[in-house]
Amino acid sequence: MNVDRRHFLIMLPAAAIAWKYVLAGTPEESPNYKMSDHWWSMLIDIPKCIGCGNCVRACALENDVPEGHFRTWVERYHVTDWDMVNPEVISPDGGKEGFPAAQVDDNGKYFFVPKLCNHCADSPCTQVCPVGATFISPDGVVLIDQTYCLGCAYCVQACPYGCRYIHPEKKVADKCTLCYHRITKGLTTACCEACPTGARQLADLKDPNDPIHAFLRTHNVQVLKPQMATGAKVFYNELDGSVR
């Protein structure tokens, strides 16, 4: 390419502007969103879940989740009176297309448990990452830097809730982002948006006006595997003791 001095000087300002964006490295961020003002969590109201699978489908569509892998999924528990510690748990295709009809069982009970990344405050998965590719963002969401991830899958093993998988094409770790691209723009997550009964509610623990605070005070709310001390932030209302 032949560039004389005149054209070189003309191109300089354009190059300077372009270089500024290269250095910045961050594509458009939400202008009014301040990370330090939020601490995200989710509330799952088990008595409201009907096992329709709307959340699983919505998540797959919103986040381009590969077939056979799940960022959120729904489990159906069948607990019988005589064996409370060994529930029968099914989750056909993650509950994506719902569940087969259950017959009335006079000696047991059925219920649905939607699962997703618990966005732990003291997350085991971020602690084992050897390269700093997964981390807890300042607003309390466990995220993966997929350009940095090596795909070693330490985090997949470390997660006590089985919420991570290795993306079959990208060969890097993948998981629920709590729809970070939505919540930073003032929207709720895709699963909450699609849930027809309000069984899932996005909650911001740093927002004093969020109804989560009153709910946590007045309901029987638990997290999954509290003995792991992960600081899980997905709260389950009326969680049965048989759920693991």
Partner: peptide, 20 residues
């Protein structure tokens, strides 16, 4: 922290499919 801070903005810039 021990991670690339720009990754947060990159994840936040993913396209939206459910309008709300």
């Amino acid at each position: 922290g021990h991670y690339r801070a720009a990754a947060i903005g990159e994840i936040a810039a993913h396209p939206i499919h459910f309008a709300g």
